[in-house]
């Protein structure tokens, strides 16, 4: 199972508990699947300057494979300090 993490304004009721089906094999598949089951989230992921973190490393290549034991986090624009 791929663990999903949503931060900041991407947090939403039940989103961390979403379980991607086996045909989700890449980060791009995951984003497509999320947009399908939660259109508001899908829109936020495409319109917001969202960064993707795979196993605690920022990644840009959405063709990267994901699978059992991986953790994928979606980070909206940051506002620390």
């Amino acid at each position: 199972m791929v663990k999903l993490v949503f931060l900041g304004k991407l947090r939403g009721e039940g989103r961390d508990d979403l379980v991607a089906p086996p045909n989700v094999m890449t980060l791009a598949d995951l984003k497509d699947w999320l947009a399908h089951c939660d259109p508001a989230l899908g829109e936020a992921l495409t319109t917001m300057r969202t960064q993707v973190v795979l196993n605690r490393e920022i990644v840009h290549d959405m063709a990267l494979p994901i699978g059992d034991g991986d953790e994928v986090a979606f980070l909206p624009p940051m506002s620390g300090g």
């Binding site: 931060l7 900041g8 304004k9 980070l75 909206p76 624009p77 940051m78 506002s79 620390g80 300090g81």
Partner: peptide, 21 residues
Amino acid sequence: KTDAPLWKRETGPNGERWIEP
């Protein structure tokens, strides 16, 4: 301010709002 993975949410008289950079 722009690169630390932190997200601010303020609660005021008009409710909650997430802060953008």
